[in-house]
Computed example of a mutant assay.
Amino acid sequence: MSSSLRRIVFALFIATTLFCATITAYAADKITIASVSWTGVTIKTEVAASILKSLGYETDIKVLSVPITYTALANDDADVFFGNWMPSMASIANKFFKSGKVVKYVANMPGAKYTLATPTFCAQAGLKDFKDIAKFGDKLDWKIYGIEAGNDGNMIIQDMIDKNMFGLGKFKLVASSEVVMLSQVQAYAQSNKWIVFLGWAPHSMNERIDMTYLTGSTDQTFGGNDGTATVWTNVRKGFVEDNPNAAKLFSNMTFSVSMMNQIMTSLHEDPKLGMKKAGLKWLKANPDTYEKWLEGVTTVAGKPGDVAFKAYLDSQF
């Protein structure tokens, strides 16, 4: 091989190597976040995407149902999910954890609540426990209100009905969106009409609806501690090894119930703010939180992550 031909071959080798390295780096710098259309999960997702953007990552948010979210994580079509409510999602998520295709990873919000609720005037009239629901079937029009179809909470309610647990066999599950369901609950509560619905905390519903969570949940329903829940961040298999810097950020990102309640309340008071801005506005007012989240985290270029995110926040307000 002539020296000139060797130089051409070597140049082609270098160019190919650099091209492949660029493609690999680009792939590692893109994070796909699975989300569901719940206010709290959406806020967490938007905040995480904003931080990632400030660090130099490209993000893609996919809004999916809960079952499809786990299929996406298992098939490497999504990298991370911030809305694994446990134990209520156990029937959907545990098989993916056991297979190793999805990693439970980190508890991002302990002390949450996820169970059936009712307006407080109903509780004061005797509807306090799961076993009381059937006693007031006529007043409730034999309906229990859930959120979107395929949601784990809906599945639990339907299972309770199908198995006639707590005498609920005559009831019908009414599936709807979070927004529509809560609008109906608020209207019913204001007009003293009876209703039982799927409630959770944190959420602004706890501030704007005079509501009471029912007791009586079991391990077969919303958990044995009256629906007290822990929300987890899940990642796909191999994500931590593939993206150690982003994985460090996700392991640091924890959300208190009070933090989320405050963000959601501000969003309710000013809907034009939007979920992303509501979350970022809270972080700008509470820098200690994002400084802890970004400890040990850098930009894609290797610079301090907290400095980059602070500059990003300043550009947003």
Rank of each mutant, 00 (worst) to 15 (best):
A11E: 08
F13K: 07
S37E: 12
G40F: 07
Y57S: 08
L64T: 13
S65E: 12
T71E: 13
M89E: 09
S91W: 08
S91T: 12
I92Y: 11
N94W: 07
K104N: 11
Y114L: 15
P119G: 06
C122R: 02
Q124L: 10
L127R: 00
K128I: 10
D132R: 01
W142N: 13
K143R: 15
I144G: 00
G150M: 01
M155R: 11
Q158M: 06
D159F: 00
N164T: 04
F171I: 01
F171V: 01
K172H: 12
A175Q: 15
S177P: 08
E178A: 11
V179Y: 09
V180S: 14
I195K: 02
L198N: 08
W200E: 10
A201P: 00
A201R: 11
M205S: 15
R208M: 11
L214N: 00
S217V: 01
Q220H: 08
N225W: 08
A229T: 15
V231E: 12
N234S: 15
E241S: 15
P244F: 10
N245S: 09
N252S: 09
S258H: 12
M259I: 02
M259T: 07
N261A: 07
I263M: 13
M264R: 06
S266D: 15
E269M: 08
K272S: 14
K284S: 04
P287L: 02
Y290N: 02
L294M: 09
T298C: 09
K303P: 05
F309K: 01
Y312R: 01
Y312P: 02
D314C: 02
